[in-house]
Lab assay of single mutants.
Amino acid sequence: RGITCLDHENEKVNMYCVSDDQLICALCKLVGRHRDHQVASLNDR
């Protein structure tokens, strides 16, 4: 089922925000508060 995003409840987390040490979803990176932050794919970890 996967872990859902805290900010976007219908989205699954699939990225890690290095700047905030937090799991995020694609919407967080595209339009959310993490858009200018350094992120890594969970597949890279």
Score class of each variant (00 low, 15 high):
R33C: 04
L27T: 07
N10A: 03
D7P: 01
S41Y: 02
T4M: 10
D21I: 00
D36M: 08
M15P: 05
K29M: 10
N14D: 07
V31L: 08
K29G: 14
Q38H: 05
L42E: 14
N43H: 11
G32C: 01
I24C: 02
V18D: 13
Q38N: 08
L30W: 09
L42M: 10
S19P: 10
L6Y: 13
G2P: 05
L30H: 11
D20Y: 00
L27I: 02
R33G: 12
D21H: 04
L30C: 12
V31W: 03
D44H: 07
A26G: 14
S19D: 06
K29L: 04
L6T: 15
L30K: 15
V31Q: 15
K12D: 11
G2S: 09
A26H: 06
A26V: 06
Y16N: 05
N10K: 05
G32A: 02
R45A: 15
S19E: 13
E11W: 05
R33L: 10
D36K: 06
D44P: 10
M15F: 09
L30D: 15
G32L: 01
V13P: 05
I3H: 06
I3D: 14
M15R: 08
S19V: 10
N43C: 08
S19W: 05
D36L: 08
I3W: 05
H8E: 02
K29V: 07
V39I: 07
V39K: 02
H8V: 00
A26M: 03
E11C: 10
S41H: 07
I24S: 06
V39S: 13
E9A: 14
H8L: 01
Q22S: 12
I3F: 12
D20C: 06
C17E: 07
L27E: 15
K29S: 13
K29C: 07
V18A: 13
L23C: 13
R35G: 11
N14Y: 07
R1N: 11
S19T: 12
D7Y: 08
T4A: 05
G32Y: 01
L30A: 15
C25F: 02
C5D: 03
A40L: 05
M15W: 14
D20Q: 01
E9F: 14
C17K: 11
I3L: 07
N14H: 14
V13K: 04
N10W: 03
L30R: 15
A26I: 01
I24A: 08
L23V: 12
E11D: 10
G2F: 01
D20K: 03
M15A: 13
L6H: 13
H34T: 02
E9K: 13
R45V: 08
N43E: 15
R45D: 09
D7Q: 07
G32Q: 02
V18G: 12
N14L: 08
S19N: 09
D20V: 00
D44R: 07
R33K: 13
G32P: 03
V18S: 12
E9Y: 10
A40V: 07
V13E: 05
I3P: 03
D7T: 05
N10R: 07
D44S: 09
H8Q: 02
A40P: 03
N14M: 02
H8R: 01
C17A: 04
K12H: 08
N43M: 05
A40C: 09
N14A: 11
R1L: 06
R45G: 15
L23F: 13
V18M: 13
E11A: 06
H8N: 04
H8W: 00
V13S: 09
D21C: 07
E9S: 10
Q22Y: 04
L27D: 10
D20W: 00
L6W: 05
C5T: 02
A40N: 09
K12I: 05
C28T: 01
Y16H: 08
C17Q: 03
H34N: 02
R45W: 07
L23H: 09
L42H: 06
Y16V: 12
L27C: 10
A26N: 15
A40K: 07
H34A: 02
D44T: 08
R35D: 05
C25D: 00
L23K: 15
D20E: 08
S19C: 08
Q38E: 14
C28D: 02
R33Y: 09
E9V: 04
T4N: 11
Y16G: 12
G2Q: 06
C25G: 00
V13A: 08
V18T: 15
A26E: 12
Q22D: 06
G2N: 15
L27G: 10
H8Y: 00
R1T: 08
R1W: 02
K12W: 05
C5V: 01
A40M: 05
